[in-house]
Design a protein around this nucleic acid. Structure first.
Lengths: 343, 343
DNA sequence: CCGCAAATTGGTAGCGCTGCCAAAAAACCC
DNA sequence: GGGTTTTTTGGCAGCGCTACCAATTTGCGG
């Protein structure tokens, strides 16, 4: 399993190598340290020939500026910290992708850690992130422990809450309303004439955004005298397999459903596959509705009926606001209901 | 779209807030700076009551240590830099997830940037990462520009190459052989009796690992006198939609295929959906084989035939080796062929 | 060729912490 | 109780860079 690489100096070469420093570059170029610094950051004024001499020395020594030192010396850091619930749920990589691109362009650096949907862990990780004195901290949702909130408030760094506008924002919030999403999903199913509706979801205590969608979904059904008929909540994270299992269980208990709302597209796909496997015709016998608008839902034999959320855009906008040091605000990016063919 | 949050002091509160420093804590606790430092890092010796006084002061001032300063002052950083091709391809979030968990436990911090499969960008980003003086840089694969290699060599930090063992490693390599994966995929299809085999893939110039699988797949077919019948290569990244489109095109050109190898599971799922939609029965009329072993492939009506790769484990092992400052080595985690029901 | 403004430059004090060393205090042993 | 150890502590010099300020050089008009 583990094949040691043949060769002599295995560990030797990793002694902390004396990297060139700014002072050495200055010396080599025959100029002052501050001049090198100015040239490298292209900030302040310097003559063309100075620039060339400095760059030549940089090249010659293979100098790579030390951002740690630079950040410490200057006032503001160019780090942005992400504290996200999960990397398995594609939602968060999508947000990271959007934000990462913008941050990169602006020479910011993204650092991240994963909470596993655990508010306690979120607090601990937020504290750990703050130790890097980031320019901003980005978190999922607007539900945080008291400790987290207090800490973030006290930190003086920008705070961006992502993907959930149903609550009070600490500073910047970018996303959309999950309650509205739940509401519109219900309204859509009702409009289509479905009345006996069930729900298959994953652990809602942890994923509060899914919880919000679900509760407003139910409220809407109630308001139309078509209360939820049955639900199946699986412990653990959302997954295609859980969706399939959940629907199977739900149908075993409840025979006359005409539509099922899933906590998200992963779950819904699982449900869809279950129907395909069992020969349950969609949507005539059973309708399926998801949430997220994953690309895969467009390529299934029948496009999935769902709500497409602006995940990448959420990351982009969030990053742009941070880079621009925009004032506190909430940005509603909305979402799009995809009619699809499964409902 | 953008609703300004009502309220007065919009920007004021973000002036660089004077966070408490170690010196202030020391002062407040009535001890020396080094004592505070020792207590906080639980390193060196100090009495129980000193500890309490320090912790009380820390609590009182809401002190959060500045890791930037700490890192600069101490020799080695606890940063690990990831330079990955993509966040859309679930492979990389999976690796990050595995590595992130281990790094977190060991109080390391992950930073990342995304190359979009562009070697030039990889070089630029690697340079940017090096500026943070990370303990290690993790890259995908073992194909890098000359500049990247030179830079990494000179940096003196650990280098980990992930997910590809077919090549010379710079330092540590963790993953498996893509060539072997391609070979075994071909062998499996041949063993099942398929002889007229096609391929649907995404941009192989960029994704060199997929390219390696494909070329050794073809070699194996050739060696068994069943050369590849047709191929359809789509520009751009892999996706379910491209897989579907690719298979559609391939079948339009070539009528008598009995199996298709896809560049990965995303693509294969697309192909699978195409067959479902067109009523092409699987695997009797057409077999489908993927790569990656995504969870979703286990939940489809017919489990996808594929190769399951140890993505999370790759991240975990890589992180463990870095944390342990292990000697240079290549770790072959292997992969598992999932027979599934689509081939 | 002088005087003054503008453009360049270098010196240096930190940024907040750690690592080293020596001083002080506590513990221990005849 | 004196002489050692051993533990606990504080002081302080950097880590490599940036920000500020003062010094130097250059440009230009008269």
């Amino acid at each position: 399993m583990v094949k040691e690489k043949l060769g002599s100096n295995v560990t030797m070469e990793f002694k902390h190598q004396p990297t060139a420093t700014l002072a050495e570059v200055a010396e080599a170029a025959g100029v002052g340290e501050s001049t090198v610094s100015r040239v490298l950051r292209n900030h302040g004024s310097f003559s063309g020939k100075t620039r060339e001499r400095v760059m030549a020395a940089v090249e010659r020594l293979g100098y790579v500026p030390n951002r740690i030192a630079g950040t410490l010396a200057s006032t503001g850091s160019r780090l942005v910290a992400f504290v996200i619930p999960s990397l398995s749920n594609i939602v968060f990589p999508d947000v990271l992708r959007g934000a990462g691109a913008v941050l990169e362009e602006n020479r910011y650096q993204a650092v991240f850690s994963v909470t596993d949907y655990d508010p306690g862990k979120e607090e601990a990780l937020a504290a750990a992130m703050l130790a890097w004195r980031p320019a901003a901290v980005m978190l999922a949702g607007c539900e945080h422990t008291e400790g987290t909130v207090k800490m973030l408030r006290a930190s003086g760094c920008r705070v961006v809450e992502l993907l959930d506008l149903d609550g009070d924002a600490l500073d910047i919030a970018v996303g959309f309303s999950n309650r509205a999403a739940g509401r519109e999903s219900a309204a859509f199913l009702l409009k289509r004439g479905y009345r006996r509706i069930g729900y298959v979801g994953h652990d809602l205590n942890r994923d509060t955004r899914a919880g919000k969608r679900f509760s407003s979904f139910c409220e809407t059904l109630d308001a139309h005298d078509a209360p939820l008929v049955a639900r199946e909540i699986l412990p653990g994270a959302s997954s295609v397999e859980n969706g399939r299992l959940g629907l199977e269980r739900l149908l075993a208990r409840t025979t006359d459903l005409d539509a099922v709302y899933f906590s998200n597209d992963d779950m819904a796909l699982g449900g869809y596959f279950h129907c395909l496997a069992e020969g349950i015709s969609i949507p005539s016998k059973l309708a399926i509705f998801g949430y997220n608008g994953l690309d895969i839902g467009r390529a299934t034999p029948q496009p999935l009926s769902t709500i497409r959320t602006p995940r990448v855009a959420t990351g982009e906008i969030a990053a742009q606001l941070v880079v621009a040091n925009a004032p506190a605000q909430a940005v509603d990016l909305g979402f799009e209901l995809i009619e699809g063919a499964t409902a």
